[in-house]
Write a protein that binds this DNA or RNA. Structure first.
Length: 823
RNA sequence: GCCCCGAUAGCCCAAUGGCAGAGGCAGAGGACUUAAAAUCCUCCCAGUGUGGGUUCGACCCCCACUCGGGGCACCA
């Protein structure tokens, strides 16, 4: 270490080394002492996955979270700003397979590395509350929650065609399939019929949708829109069609019951049981089977291509249209989805593009029942979906769309042929995984008693030792090979039974972790109600938009379930959400293969922690991506040195009366404090820093060519600069604070109280416009009235000359800023 | 195809219907210096993607379009 005397210039490496051990001693970010009278705030950063050391993305996210946490501390709040690790998951398991070692080792090593980096990065975390989701003390409560859901029928098993990643050799939730590819490894996802565990999130679809009202304005619109689309509620009707030669009718779902008279055929999903049943014993059966097999062989990618020509098979069966008794051909096709609605639709080619494409391909009739004013769909090939007057529709003729829907729904309901219905795009959450590194599902399968939950006093059900297990993906959970672990006794009847060998999706872990921080060390409950009522819901959540659907939707679901169970007094977990952008390089995401990877450790080495944090925060609005090729860390270093130098120039003593200071610098200081606070609260951190830069420039001038370094206003300004800088540049700020004669930690120094009287300017410049064009500027007092400023404007010689005797049509006065004279 | 967001100086970005420029980067010049670096000072640069509309007044609101980014996508 070098000595202070050697460092006339600002030396970030020296300052960093100097303060870390002192902060370790003071622990300025400990939250929640019982006697703490300050109001509380819960600021939460999305917890990291320990996949290696911290990278540029973490550096941005934690810099932003820190601005918010440190700001509220300065503002006098008792802030809880915790951190932990989302530590289960595939990367650890894959690394373990590669190195032939226990995933625990890799995981805990990475956690230690990241933790050390966070300390060096001066994150304002409360280190007393740390936990890792792979700790048995944590995942015990995953199991407890699973059992609570199981009790209430919200965790259940079913056979279903599930998303299967052939490379990861595990099932995937719908949310983890992106454009037909596994989100983790980009392998084309296939379908596999399996018996799997699900959480019944669909029971909460309406509430997940409707409760978003209270998040509006506090969450990014983008995220709310994405969640709405994902849930995809649609309002329509179920209608029963009789089938020739079949006892029971077939129910179809439609959002356009008004077009029922325009149905010219029926289509059932080729992979549905209904299709197989209808085809059985008909002349079309062989053709149908061949078609079905070809569809099943095709991947989701092919199926997702919407511009693909329509295909299908006529099943040689007929349905009867309930409203007009017409006989409709029944076709099987892959454009109808088996797991949406009832897997069967009425086709109205005139008013639905997909049906029209199919009708034209198969030479099926098209009948217009809504006069929209557009050209005939059978000629143009373009279905008319707009509103219009109903025709060829019996009792509905002459009505518009809305009235026709209401009328037909009433008729259907009266006759028992149908009723209004809702459908959702959202599916139940598939939570079982055939991999090792996750929470074991706490269920025992007994021949006599069926699915039996592991009793609470036997939790945690620990993962068996990885030693001796083959973790390689093979379609069956590696836990199945842990014979001693698998073979157990039924908790109910004591007979020999088998443990469930699947593990939970790691998104289960992250769906409630924010509830654990306030009571993270408690071993008898997942969270204490008293702590929850003190700290929750989270006041400010900060994280990447990549979790807009998955994590945030699941967390909202869990919160509602736990509320219903009576464990929480609120239904939305995150009051405010900030999504930071990504750190990119030359316009694209950083990656080794692209060769544009910037190493955080190099940047920190070259420019120092504060300069990197400052660069991240100053680069632009937090939601925007940071292009590292656009930012100038050396510019940040320059600014920080400039600010630091001010602290050495102040010659007045701490505690000097600021009221005697030079007035214009005092005004600049108070304006900066006021504006920066407002900017931080509205997430415009880049603007807040610009305000600090202005004040630094003004103070420099005051020292060099103004009232001089002894003026109390200079001390007031530099202290304000240090406090404002403490949000982004904690080392520099602390060093400045010491040079100003104060004791650490500046983090808890408190935001100076803004004197409203100093926010008012003595004189302001008002503009005078004629027809919106500026012709003169005048000095006015800020308290001038509209009438006074109007009089001043009209009396102004330049204005009088420009008017040249003309009478203004209208004069708009907006004191004290402007007067607009309209001729 | 549908939905959302964005477009301001060479570059990153400010300006919550009222003077387009707060701040920074890059660039130019000067002071200091034997010189350079550092530091300090000064300066340069656009009329807000395009076309309409509303308004006394539009970067800001409305309509249409262009380009860029993101989300959803055969959900009946």
């Amino acid at each position: 270490m070098t000595t202070p005397q050697e460092h006339q210039a600002y030396d970030f490496a020296y300052v960093q080394e100097k303060w870390l051990p002192i902060w370790d001693e003071i622990e300025p970010f400990k939250s929640g002492r019982p006697d703490d009278p300050r109001p509380k705030k819960y600021v939460l950063d999305m917890f990291p996955y320990p996949s290696g050391d911290l990278h540029m993305g973490h550096a941005e996210a934690y810099a932003l979270g820190d601005v918010i946490a440190r700001y509220w501390i300065q503002k006098g709040f008792n802030v809880m700003h915790p951190i932990g690790w989302d530590a289960f998951g595939l990367p650890a398991e894959n690394a373990a397979i590669k190195r032939n070692e226990d995933p625990r080792i890799w995981t805990y090593e990475n956690i230690a590395t990241q933790k050390a980096s966070m300390r060096r990065y001066a994150c304002s975390f409360d280190w007393d509350r740390v936990f890792n989701t792979c700790d048995p003390e944590y995942y015990k409560w995953n199991q407890w929650l699973f059992i609570e859901l199981h009790k209430r029928g919200l965790a259940y098993r079913k056979d279903s065609a599930v998303n299967w990643c052939p490379s990861c050799q595990t099932v995937l939730a719908n949310e983890q399939v992106v454009a037909g590819l596994c989100e983790r490894c980009d392998t084309a996802v296939t379908k596999k019929k399996l018996n799997q565990w699900y959480f019944k999130i669909t029971d909460y679809a309406d509430r997940l949708l409707d409760d978003m009202k209270e998040l509006e304005g506090h969450w990014p619109d983008k995220v709310l829109t994405m969640q709405r689309n994902w849930i995809g509620r649609s309002q329509g009707a179920n209608v029963n069609f009789m089938i020739e030669g079949r006892h029971a009718p077939v129910t179809i779902y439609t959002t356009r019951p008004d077009t029922l008279h325009g149905a010219t055929f029926m289509v059932v999903a080729v992979d549905s049981e209904l299709a197989a049943e209808l085809a059985a014993g008909t002349a079309a059966e062989e053709k149908f089977k061949k078609y079905r097999d070809s569809v099943k062989a095709a991947s989701d990618i092919d199926r997702l291509a919407t511009d693909r020509p329509k295909s299908g098979i006529f099943l040689e069966r007929y349905a009867i249209n309930p409203v007009n008794g017409e006989k409709l051909q029944i076709w099987a096709s892959d454009y109808v989805l088996a797991d949406y609605g009832t897997g069967a639709i009425m086709a109205v080619p005139a008013h639905d593009q997909r049906d029209l494409d199919f009708a034209r391909a198969m030479k099926l009739p098209v009948r217009v029942v809504v006069e929209t004013g557009d050209e005939d769909p059978s000629e143009t090939g373009i279905a008319t979906t707009g509103d219009g007057k109903l025709v060829n529709s019996g009792s509905l003729n002459g009505l518009n769309k809305v009235d026709a829907i209401a009328a037909i729904n009433k008729e259907l309901e009266a006759s028992g042929l149908g009723k209004s219905a809702r459908n959702y795009r959202l599916r139940d959450w598939l939570v079982s995984r055939q991999r090792y590194w996750g929470t074991p599902i706490p269920i025992v399968h007994c021949d006599k008693c069926g699915e039996v939950a592991v009793p609470a006093d036997q939790l945690p059900l620990q993962l068996p030792d990885a030693k001796g297990l083959d973790l390689k993906p093979k379609g069956q959970s590696p836990l199945a090979a842990a014979t001693e672990w698998v073979n157990t006794k039924c908790p109910t009847c004591g007979a020999a039974a088998l443990r469930d060998t699947d593990t939970m999706d790691t998104f289960v872990d992250s769906s409630w972790y924010f509830l654990r921080y306030p009571s993270s060390k408690n071993s008898t409950e997942p969270f204490l109600r008293a702590d929850i009522d003190t700290w929750l819901p989270v006041d400010q959540y900060v994280g990447g938009v990549t979790h807009a659907i998955l994590h945030l939707l699941y967390s909202r679901f869990f919160t509602k379930v736990l509320h219903d169970i009576g464990l929480l007094g609120f239904t939305e977990p995150f009051t405010r959400l900030l999504n930071q952008g990504m750190v990119v390089m030359d316009g694209s995401a950083m990656s080794k293969s692209r060769g544009n990877l910037v190493r955080l450790s190099d940047e920190l080495e070259n420019h120092g922690v504060d300069a990197i944090r400052l660069s991240m925060v100053f680069s632009g609005p937090p939601e925007d991506d940071v292009d590292w090729s656009d930012v100038s860390p050396s510019g940040s270093v320059k600014f920080l040195s400039r600010a630091w130098r001010l602290s050495g120039d102040v010659t007045s003593k701490p505690g000097v009366a600021f009221a005697n200071g030079e007035i214009s610098l005092r005004k600049a200081t108070h304006k900066a404090l006021h504006d920066a606070a407002f900017a931080v609260e509205s997430f415009r951190f880049n603007v807040a820093i610009a305000r600090v830069m202005e004040l630094v420039n003004a103070t420099r001038k005051a020292i060099d060519s103004g009232p001089g370094s002894a003026d109390p206003a200079v001390r007031e300004a530099v202290e304000a600069i240090a406090i404002m800088l403490s949000l982004v540049a904690p080392f520099t700020a602390e060093e400045m604070w010491e040079r100003l004669g104060h004791k650490p930690a500046i983090a808890t120094a408190g935001w100076p109280v803004v004197d409203e009287k100093l926010l008012v300017a003595d004189a302001v410049e008002a503009v005078i416009q004629i027809n919106g064009k500026i012709i003169e500027r005048i000095e006015v007092t800020p308290t001038i009235s509209d009438a006074e400023i109007e009089a001043l404007a009209l009396a102004n010689p330049t204005v009088a000359a420009a008017l040249n005797g003309a009478t203004p049509k209208k004069v708009i006065a907006r004191a004290p800023k402007l007067v607009n004279i309209v001729l």
